[in-house]
Design a protein around this nucleic acid. Structure first.
Lengths: 343, 343
DNA sequence: TTGTACGCGTTATCAC
DNA sequence: GTGATAACGCGTACAA
């Protein structure tokens, strides 16, 4: 706020010979004034160069229209695109977003949440995963999590299980001899575990020879390259002359794997079939476009904000009925066939 | 805010038999109380389960600690990483960020800015480019723009000219026969134009045979592929058997170009040298890692927030001295040599 | 349709 | 070191 006095409803009231109340109504229920008077006030606003002050409004009516977001980072395309889509819902719902980058350290993330609460956010979207959902539930404010452990809070997730099924079925349709899933060690209580379960179930159901290779792939390109190079060595050793159907945990990893193959063979060998996950840009921009399981980020974002808005609206009623059980929404992914499987 | 009454300074005051003032001082100047009394209040806070309300504090002291951000999108890695780094400065400066995705439509971006002003943001970071800097300056609040037209406002930009120079010199060091710069048509008043000027100046200085190919490359991968395919055809036709040094406006485009070459020749032909711009992930993740000009996003973000904080602090003084002229900070990029030039 | 009076939860300015 | 009181700018019963 500026040093100089701001123009307030009081000033406008004096200037127009109305009361503060009438000025307030001009903004919140204009139809309750005569058109004539609306005109007068409208002009006065311009002449006095009035700037509205939503902070004062918040204090008076308790509605901040703030939603807090804690997101792990924006390096990862999945997160940045999700944030992008969430922010775009302003057009539809009018809520403003206060955004924090979680730093994977529970204690500081707790501080971020406290800060958000101090600003009286009406709801909270959590994508970082350091804080257990039980603790989040105990905040007793509307919360939605996305793609993380969500036992005690509302959430929106991709149907990871279906994604695993789709990917595996696509590979199966090419009659591979061996089916391999490459992933980092994954806890069973996070949604992404479904990808593994989907892979396993289909392999068992169809009686397919399969293996899951768990390996910490690291964060840097260099580390991923080294880890996946070892994985590739192992695969080449264990399954020579076999048609390999490989489902990798993300497009980023799939691309690294693909590049390793291209470096070794100058192309994607005939006996390799590859499917990634995410439909991130790299899957189309790769030297050979990679088949993948696409998450509907736009839809997930919209569902998340909608689910949050519902809870926030419920809270504003005179007799709010809190949810008995947290609601978990599932968004179905879609299989995208590209050149690593269609050759 | 909840329906139930919040615990306020008043409640604490009654509970502890102090006055509101003393409670306030406990938070803002604890040393002015005796240790004993600090203890008493401290306990009362826990017992009453007090939650601070920064909205009321804002209304009373006028400091929101909000910074507004308008950014074109988060699809583009450059933007999402910049936002990431900006948000991380919370740790250093304590400012909270209200973020809007500009939609390239001046009128709605103006509305976003009005909304931000209504929330009494103390400063504004603008990365979108629809609104002229003159108009931004007329808002009369601390502003910093990043990598856009900035005549009338403070800004932080990459030294695009130096980037162009570095890229061209790298290509020149390989004694190419023809030097080509591929770019979209670019207005001379935006920072990115420096890349073109740098390329031109070096070519002229060193007397290098050169050409600039201006072409609208489009936004989708498919469109870029088509446009760049035409560009490649033209280059192959105009400069057969010549050693080609190619400087492309971004890594994304460079990668598409590289993939086209790999598709045609199964590798990067000996007579092609390639340099991109941005050091975005795709430049390392490409089938052949791409040489590029790296922008110091972390540094730019920090400079931008610092520059903004300086202005905001100046404003809080009893006798603020507004800047005579906008400050423009320049961050030097760094050349990254990878396999598309070092073979 | 319009006005009065008070509340929202904190900080600032004086006093003591 | 502590307290009383008036801001801060707007919303909202309730009254007229």
């Amino acid at each position: 706020m500026t040093k100089k006095k701001n123009v307030t409803f009081n000033d406008i009231a004096k200037y127009t010979n109305f009361s503060k109340t009438t000025i307030s109504r001009y903004f919140n229920d204009p139809d309750s004034l005569t058109l004539e008077n609306q005109e007068i006030i409208s002009k006065a606003l311009v002449e006095l160069n009035y700037k509205e002050n939503k902070v004062a409004r918040i204090l008076a009516n308790g509605k901040t229209e703030f939603i807090g977001i804690v997101i792990p980072n924006l390096h990862n395309h999945y997160y940045s695109e999700m944030l992008n889509q969430i922010l775009l819902t302003y057009e539809q719902f009018g809520y403003k977003f206060l955004v924090f980058i979680g730093n994977e350290h529970a204690e500081t993330e707790r501080q971020y949440i406290q800060e958000l609460l101090a600003y009286k956010i009406e709801g909270l979207i959590i994508m970082s995963f350091t804080i257990p959902s039980k603790e989040l539930a105990d905040l007793h404010i509307p919360i939605v999590t996305i793609e993380r452990e969500d036992k005690y809070v509302c959430s929106v997730n991709t149907d990871n299980y279906m994604g695993g099924v789709q990917a595996t079925c696509l590979l199966a349709s090419h009659n591979c001899d061996i089916f391999i899933h490459i992933n980092s060690p994954t806890a069973p209580d996070i949604p992404a575990y479904g990808r593994i379960q989907g892979f396993l179930d289909i392999c068992r159901e169809k009686n397919l020879k399969h293996e899951i290779i768990y390996k910490n792939l690291g964060n840097s390109y260099q580390m991923m390259k080294e880890s996946l190079s070892e994985v590739l060595d192992k695969i080449e050793k264990d399954y020579p002359n076999e048609k390999k159907g490989i489902f990798i945990s993300s497009d980023t990893h799939a691309n690294v794997f693909l590049n390793l193959l291209i470096q070794r063979y100058g192309k994607l060998p005939e006996d390799y079939y590859l499917v990634g996950f995410d439909n991130s840009p790299i899957s189309t921009e790769a030297a050979i476009p990679i088949s993948t399981v696409g998450q509907h980020i736009e839809k997930i974002a919209l569902e998340a904000v909608s689910l949050l808005v519902e809870q926030m609206n419920e809270r504003k009623k005179r007799k709010p009925v809190p949810l008995e059980e947290p609601i978990h929404k599932i968004v179905t992914p879609c299989l995208i066939r590209r050149e690593t499987t269609e050759k």
